[in-house]
């Protein structure tokens, strides 16, 4: 997620702090736009299916490469390529669920077994992409646009569209969860799958729809990451732990938390890049994750109190 910092003119002679803040706002928001939707998707997947799917990062990669295929090989406009990629990635997700995970879930294996299996699945996706496209980075073919000042922000029109799409889609998902039948079914299945069966809910269908949504969001995230940086087979794997950081900050099964967590993580990462060291921005997301796990494992919106005692007195505590 190395965004094109070159689009931005450097003001060397002017007030550095002011521009650092401006950088933070703009890049923070852009990083947020790349993280928010995949972290929301991963959150929904975990919320409903109750296991950590570590292939999700590679599904993000697949989304980016499917869009790349449309955009570069078939010369389709990036917007339409995005839509096609959403559909194809969703299809991929459903395929993986039906072929690999469904049988294991029905056999009632534990979440850890599913996690291990998902690693294998991720390995396969990543290397199929590698064989198809090679290790070199790619970029989308997008019309060249100039960045403009917008209040304290500094964005190209493409970037504004990305941020808007991100916010609108997130709101759409929230409304869907709150007010539609599918949203109710997803929440019910998340609460208690065996009661859902008793009530007559086909949880297999709910899992399928959840994967469609989660993978669609992964595709958007992958394309956005590609728009701001480069597209390469390892991009999703790199992003995966960052996505988990977003989720853990916000509370792992809380969709609102996933988006807020993405916002916090994005700004923490960009602040690190500006004031500490750019290569360590991903590490700052991990450190944030460990910090939250240490003091408040249920995330910032969790019910439990902050457990400073773990942080301060861990050597003396027994359990």
């Amino acid at each position: 997620m190395n965004r094109g910092r070159k689009t931005r003119p450097r003001h060397s002679s002017q007030d550095g702090v002011y521009f650092a803040m401006e950088d933070l706002l703009s890049y923070g928001l852009l990083t947020f736009a790349t993280l928010a939707l995949p972290s929301l998707g991963l959150c929904l997947a975990i919320k409903v299916t109750k296991y950590f799917n570590l292939a999700y990062g590679d599904i993000v990669t697949a989304g980016a490469f499917l869009a790349l295929l449309m955009n570069l090989s078939f010369k389709i406009n990036i917007g339409i390529a995005l839509l096609i990629s959403i559909a194809l990635t969703a299809l991929l997700g459903v395929f993986l669920h039906k072929v690999v995970f469904k049988a294991l879930m029905e056999a009632k294996v534990g979440p850890l077994t599913l996690l291990v299996v998902s690693l294998g699945v991720g390995l396969v996706i990543r290397n199929v992409v590698l064989i198809g496209w090679g290790p070199q980075p790619y970029q989308f073919n997008t019309p060249l646009t100039r960045a403009k000042h917008l209040g304290p922000f500094f964005f190209t029109p493409n970037q504004i569209v990305m941020i808007l799409i991100c916010i609108l889609v997130a709101i759409g998902i929230f409304l869907m969860l709150r007010y539609t039948q599918l949203g109710r079914l997803m929440r019910a299945t998340s609460d208690n799958p065996s009661l859902s069966l008793i009530r007559g809910i086909s949880i297999e269908k709910v899992y399928t729809y959840t994967w469609i949504i989660a993978c669609g969001l992964a595709a958007i995230g992958g394309v956005f990451m590609g728009m701001l940086g480069t597209i390469k087979p390892g991009m999703g794997e790199e992003a995966l732990v960052t996505l988990f950081a977003c989720l853990i900050v916000g509370g792992i099964e809380n969709p609102y938390g996933a988006v807020v967590g993405a916002l916090i993580t994005a700004f923490a990462m960009e602040a690190t890049a500006i004031w500490i060291s750019p290569p360590y921005k991903v590490v700052s997301a991990y450190l944030l994750m460990f910090f939250i796990l240490l003091i408040k494992p249920s995330g910032i919106f969790g019910r439990e109190k902050i457990q400073w005692k773990y942080f301060l007195g861990f050597l003396r505590s027994r359990q």
Partner: peptide, 12 residues
Amino acid sequence: AIRLIIIGVLLV
């Protein structure tokens, strides 16, 4: 890459 694909499938 082919090796890793085979290993991933084997795991599953």
